[in-house]
Design a protein around this nucleic acid. Structure first.
Lengths: 105, 105
DNA sequence: ACGATATACATCGTAACACGAAGTATATAG
DNA sequence: CTATATACTTCGTGTTACGATGTATATCGT
């Protein structure tokens, strides 16, 4: 997928990935893989950003001797998803505009 | 609309706006206004970029004593629109993923 | 026993991009 | 005669996705 296109989608994808159940970095990447690919550096940047924006909270836990940071969505995070869904209508309108501009003759 | 979301859409919108008929800066902004708002600085940056990428060609013409630069789409530009339409399927899949992650109970 | 692979997180620098601000210049409407 | 619309240009800035690189432990195959 085009890198520019991702910019409007990745934040919400990450939030959606942790919405129903707390998750951690590596798992988020794997869960999202069928839909969108993102590198570790990208994900951790996003997680940091969403934490700063208070859209998620973090809790560290040990698992098999390794550190894991579990991310939990906040109300603001849920709101961000809702905003995206509202914005989606505009995006569809743009898509239809792009389609419509074609001559079908 | 969210600025990040625009990143994946604006180039294609501009190309769609000139696809059926050559157009110029001010007109493009007005034509796109119902779908997406973009400032002059943004548009001219995009036009320059698309010209460099050979997705459109430019021709200057005088109109009422003022200079106008008319933009004409190239085959590469049309191809860019086609790529967008193919990519659209992936975008819809992502949208559905974001929706599906919600509890409906 | 040991190397390869998977898991897991972190940081740095870079390039692309949308935008506000500011500027130049002419035509038209009130 | 002034305000607004038309029309294009340049500069600086903040946001962002990514590759590269680094640290560290667990597990699997031979």
């Amino acid at each position: 997928m085009d890198i520019q296109m991702k910019r409007g989608l990745l934040d919400v994808c990450v939030l959606a990935a942790i919405k129903d159940e707390d998750s951690y970095g590596y798992k988020i990447i794997k869960d999202l893989k069928p839909y969108v690919e993102l590198s570790e550096s990208t994900l951790y940047t996003i997680l940091k950003r969403l934490e700063t924006a208070r859209m998620l909270t973090v809790r560290s836990a040990e698992h098999d001797g390794r550190l894991r940071k579990y991310y939990h969505i906040t109300q603001a995070g849920v709101g961000r998803i809702e905003d995206f869904k509202n914005e989606w209508k505009e995006v569809v309108t743009i898509y239809q505009f792009v389609r419509k501009e074609e001559r079908h003759e």
